[in-house]
Nucleic acid binder design. Structure first.
Length: 504
RNA sequence: GGGUCGGUAGCUCAGUCGGUAGAGCAGCGGACUUUUAAUCCGUUGGUCCCGAGUUCGAAUCUCGGCCGACCCA
């Protein structure tokens, strides 16, 4: 709410004030003195891009005959002033359109006022569509009003904002000036919408489970801690919704999904932000192989819906989502990229440790399966450009997954890799309460032994399983990473509107 | 946490061997009724990220710090 008659004095001292801002403040003061500053009675009726769609194909003569009156509003992005007339390019949510202001059609006072307005100011325009000499669709303004005074100068009009730090810290500036950035976040919205539609069309119920957990669970990760005063209780921002979603399946919601934030107290990188978005879904009476088919369909669907295609380029290299995704076990995948490694060697713990170190990685303690997984991460994971499901993860690193019926050392679990990055993780759920309790105990031991990412024993989750979880499959999909793929973004920060930054 | 690179006008960027701080855009003044990164003439604007050191003299060299990007852990 702004009182247009009384200036809000004294103005608080803003940060990084400069001469350009001071000049704009003077213009604002003059505007305020008219008693008509910051009006909110302008009714925008047309969007720039829509007008272009509807009328760009009309000829000058056709438009002249039609006399289409429009009301557009937006930010002045470009301004070209001549003696007795002027052009401006204004931008709204849909795009840009040119506006013509002249003594003849708009009036001398309006033109004079317009000349004093700045790039970044927000205006409302009433006028008639016409085409210029160069056939650009333009609004011949009959009326043009200043709606909002912008006090800060825009980034350079041609290069836009290129300081990467500023694009993240002041995303509004990035969105104002960078078309590519706007496209990315519109695409993100469409991708999320397409996933939501896909899930609900397949009979899944969208739910919201707690973001604050008394016991952090569902993943191996360090949590953020917080405190609830009234309950005098330590709480953790969730690292995953998994255990709550499975409680819902116990409750009879047999097909559920949640699209929401997870929080992990880890470093920042081009692929990691402390808060990130996951879609997790659970379906009763299915298992991991069917889950892979479903996940494959979901990803293909979101590419089609959001991009309109299944074959596109990521960072200059073709990515084809239309072909069936590969499926390989961890050992098969290692041998695909290193055919010289024999099955005997890959079953030899000492050989595996030596190889992991030879690839420049530290060896983490673990059994054969864990060592094979570490070698896979060291020598094969980054090669998986084409969509590939890696299957048969070892039990010891999969404390929530159902063990294989044929080999108790491995689980019915997969991870999906695309362009060398993990995109999804899913498995047949462990629904044997006693087995789950034993696995939690193993995790608790590992935690005591110093593994900070090991899981806690969650007694209520065990209690829920003891009531009976039907055979169920579940999968999590990293939405940020999927959006990176589909928008050709190299860093997770490019697909998160306000990525985490150090304090300014 | 370690390594590499970077931080100069509101924005985009130059700045040689250590010798008075530069351009374009934006702004301000002027000309111009179909421009479109409008054009033309004139002009204002600097904590060279911060601090210390070396030096007659530091945006420039050295050290420390802050912030960012990338790579590694």
């Amino acid at each position: 709410m702004t009182n247009t008659t009384t200036p809000p004095t004294p103005a608080p001292a803003p940060i990084d004030e400069n001469r350009l801002i001071a000049e704009r403040r003077e213009k604002l003061a003059a505007w305020r003195a008219t008693g008509k500053a910051f009006p909110n009675d302008f009714s925008r009726e047309n969007y720039a891009a829509r007008l272009d769609e509807l009328y760009a194909s009309k000829t000058r003569e056709e438009l002249e005959a039609l006399q289409i009156e429009v009301k557009v509003a937006g930010r002045i992005m470009l301004k070209r002033v001549m003696g007795k007339a002027a052009f401006a390019t204004i931008q709204d949510m849909s795009g840009r359109i040119q506006v013509f202001v002249s003594i003849d059609a708009t009036g001398e006072d309006a033109l004079k006022a317009f000349k004093g307005w700045d790039l970044g100011d927000i205006v409302g325009v009433v006028g008639v569509l016409f085409k210029t000499k160069t056939d650009e669709l333009t609004v011949q303004s009959r009326e043009i009003r200043l709606l909002t005074k912008s006090l800060r100068p825009l980034p350079e009009k041609f290069h836009g904002l290129s300081d990467v730090e500023q694009t993240y810290r002041q995303r509004y500036l990035d969105l104002m000036t960078n078309e590519g950035s706007r496209f990315t976040f519109v695409a993100r919205s469409r991708i999320v919408q397409s996933i939501r539609n896909f899930m609900t069309n397949h009979g899944f119920l969208e739910v919201e489970t707690p973001m604050m957990h008394p016991i952090p669970g569902g993943a191996a990760a360090k949590p953020f801690k917080t405190h609830h005063n009234a309950l005098d209780m330590e709480l953790f921002l969730r690292i995953a919704p998994e255990l709550y979603l499975k409680r819902l399946v116990v409750g009879g919601f047999e097909k559920v999904f949640e699209i929401n934030r997870n929080f992990r107290n880890e470093g920042l990188s081009p692929r990691h932000n402390p808060e990130f978005t996951m879609m997790e879904f659970y379906e009763a009476y299915t298992e991991y192989r069917k889950l892979m088919d479903f996940t494959e369909g979901l990803i293909r669907h979101s590419a089609r819906e959001a991009l309109g295609m299944e074959v596109f380029e990521y960072q200059g290299r073709v990515l084809d989502l239309s072909k069936p995704f590969h499926r390989l076990t961890i050992v098969e995948c290692i041998r695909k990229y290193h055919p010289g490694f024999t099955l005997q060697e890959l079953a030899d713990a000492e050989w595996l440790k030596a190889k992991i170190m030879a690839f420049g990685e530290k060896v983490k303690p673990g059994g054969l399966g864990s060592l094979q997984l570490q070698l896979f991460e060291a020598c094969a994971e980054a090669e998986l450009w084409e969509p590939t499901f890696i299957i048969d993860y070892p039990v010891e690193v999969s404390p929530l997954a159902r063990a294989s019926d044929t080999n108790p050392e491995i689980t019915e679990r997969f991870e999906l890799f695309i362009v060398g990055r993990e995109i999804a993780n899913g498995f047949s759920e462990l629904n044997d309460a006693e087995d789950q309790a034993a696995r939690f105990l193993d995790q608790a031991k590992a935690k005591e032994a110093g593994d900070e990412e090991a899981m806690y024993y969650d007694a209520d989750f065990i209690r829920a399983l003891e009531y009976g979880l039907p055979p169920t499959g579940g999968c999590g999909i990293g939405i940020d990473r999927l959006v990176m793929l589909l928008t050709d973004s190299p860093a997770i920060r490019d697909v998160i509107l306000f990525p985490q930054m150090r304090r300014e």
